[in-house]
């Protein structure tokens, strides 16, 4: 069986409608919102600040901590059990690893930067939206970083590769579905996150990564525009 038309009518390489906003949490040093279709991610950054307990400190480099959390009401009707879970710890860890390659940690030795990713509404692709929001928030906090990070999930439904799965697509029962979240550093094309859930051939994964790179160029543009917009308004006054 082939997947000939997407459930929401998008083209196979189309990303859902995106929206990004910077500076949404006033108390934080940096913050951002990133929306992909119905998935909304908020990220707030605090720091660099001193790190306790002291044994966690690293005299050679700073430490990045990423906390990922889905809000109880964020799912598709079922209450998400609040508090840390195996899943949220894993996604926090992979999000941290996706952001680490761009951040200059030697800037804040012995100190820590805390990133909080909160999801008030989810429709698949949460870690991707979270990474997009977190990289914007880090830039807004004035952290030295060599680039932003853009992220999107690529899926294989039946024998078709598609960009940016929704929850309905992930849940298709009568075809095999593979879900591959990818994070890309746009200026170099490096991959900083690559996970997979499903079965896929070698040729297809190469093609999927290329699709992710193309999609991330579009996402990066939305991110750059959002960051610049924060300062544009003030200029026109």
């Amino acid at each position: 069986m082939t997947y000939s038309k997407r459930l929401d009518g998008r083209g196979f390489e189309d990303i859902r409608e995106m929206e990004a906003k910077v500076g949404v949490v006033k108390n934080a040093d940096g913050s951002a919102m990133f929306r992909m279709g119905k998935t909304i991610a908020y990220a707030a950054v605090y720091g660099p600040k001193d790190l306790y307990p002291k044994f966690l400190q690293d005299p050679e480099r700073g430490i990045l901590r990423v906390n990922y959390n889905m809000m109880p009401f964020s799912g598709m009707g079922d209450r998400v059990r609040p508090g840390p879970s195996r899943r949220s710890r894993e996604i926090g860890m992979v999000s941290k690893n996706a952001l680490l390659p761009v951040i200059n940690l030697t800037d804040f030795k012995n100190a820590v930067v805390d990133v909080f990713i909160e999801l008030p509404q989810t429709d698949a692709g949460t870690r991707c939206a979270g990474i997009c929001a977190a990289s914007l928030a880090l830039a807004d906090a004035g952290i030295t970083m060599r680039d932003l990070v853009a992220s999107v999930s690529i899926g294989k439904i039946g024998d078709k590769l598609v960009v940016d799965l929704t929850y309905d697509e992930e849940a298709i029962k009568d075809m095999d579905v593979a879900d591959i979240p990818v994070a890309v550093i746009p200026s170099t094309g490096e991959i900083s996150l690559l996970q997979m859930d499903g079965i896929i051939s070698k040729e297809e994964i190469t093609e999927a990564i290329e699709m992710a790179k193309r999609a991330c160029v579009k996402i990066n543009k939305v991110q750059v525009d959002a960051l610049k917009k924060k300062f544009e308004v003030k200029k026109n006054e």
Partner: peptide, 29 residues
């Protein structure tokens, strides 16, 4: 914004808050 290309070629020097990436100069923050 971070990663934005500021100049290309060796005619310019990267100062504070920038870095050299091949023959390009990019923003670091």
């Amino acid at each position: 914004v971070p990663g934005e290309e500021l100049a290309s070629g060796m005619g310019y020097l990267p100062g504070q808050g920038t870095y050299r990436d091949g023959d390009k100069i990019r923003a670091n923050r």
